[in-house]
């Protein structure tokens, strides 16, 4: 495996998720070129990179929304590449989609309930989600469209957690939100990790991502340009990998 994760001694021998030499396509356009990443149980990993670097394509491939070679993505040792999204969800991978993707004709609570409709057992239920995000409890009966951007993001995260995932994929959860709201949402991530859930954070907000994750992959034009422990990477290294200069 060309990946250097093991060198840092944080990913154990059998990772929760292993992406190996993944190619992904939007129609005829190739978005990922031989990308390999790994994440261990309970770990938080950040995937950073500029617009169009392939971050969302990576998450969509893992979640089953983009085609992939079966053995390119292994979850708990089983190949899941190219599986339909509903089957991937049933195995315990939940995606918080870019732009939140709340169901507009469902109330806040109905959005949460539909996240839990697979009935996977685990620590998260409506009550726990309302404890994590109290503002959602106040607005549970309202249409999801009536929430502010930050509240919508909380609802989207809550909806994903309702599935009691082993792996939570977060696509640009800071997008379009005020910095204070972003800090507020990021402050809840340790509680989520505390339940044993692994998190892959896709972010353009590098500072936020480095604070929340233990390891970082930097994508550049569909390839992994840099990887390492968040605390070891220097600004210069990241800038070089991010912008390709």
């Amino acid at each position: 495996m060309p990946d250097s994760a093991q060198a840092h001694g944080q990913a154990p021998a059998a990772p929760l998720l292993a992406v190996t030499a993944l190619d992904a396509f939007y129609g005829d356009i190739q978005a990922l070129f031989g990308v390999s990443i790994e994440i261990a149980r309970g770990e938080a990993v950040a995937v950073i990179g500029a617009n169009g670097a392939g971050k969302s394509a990576l998450l969509k491939s893992i979640a089953g929304l983009l085609r992939a070679r079966p053995d390119a993505i292994a979850f708990e040792g089983a190949p899941i590449g190219g599986m339909p999204a509903y089957a991937v969800a049933a195995r315990g991978i939940a995606l918080v989609p870019e732009g939140r993707g709340l169901f507009a004709s469902l109330s806040v609570e109905e959005n949460l309930l539909i996240g839990g409709q697979l009935g996977r057992p685990g620590p998260w239920n409506l009550q726990r989600i309302y404890e994590l995000f109290p503002v959602l409890a106040e607005r549970r009966r309202l249409p999801s469209t009536s929430l502010s951007g930050g509240q919508q993001q909380m609802a989207a995260i809550g909806r994903a957690l309702m599935a009691n995932p082993k792996l939570l994929l977060c696509d640009e959860i800071s997008l379009g939100l005020a910095p204070i709201v972003v800090r507020d949402i990021y402050a809840r991530l340790p509680a989520i990790r505390g339940e044993g859930t692994s998190i892959i954070l896709v972010e353009q907000d590098v500072v936020q991502a480095l604070k929340a994750a233990s390891r970082v992959y930097c994508l550049q034009e569909g390839r992994v340009a840099l990887t390492g422990a968040a605390k070891d990477l220097t600004r210069e290294e990241i800038a070089a990998a991010y912008f390709g200069i």
Binding site: F103, S105, L106, I114
Partner: peptide, 22 residues
């Protein structure tokens, strides 16, 4: 729950799949 699945799938079929709905 069935009706919720109907409405969610009508709203956004791709995101509904992420909820485990075929």
């Amino acid at each position: 729950a069935l009706g919720r699945a109907f409405r969610a799938t009508a709203d956004d079929p791709a995101v509904a799949q992420l909820m485990g709905l075929d």
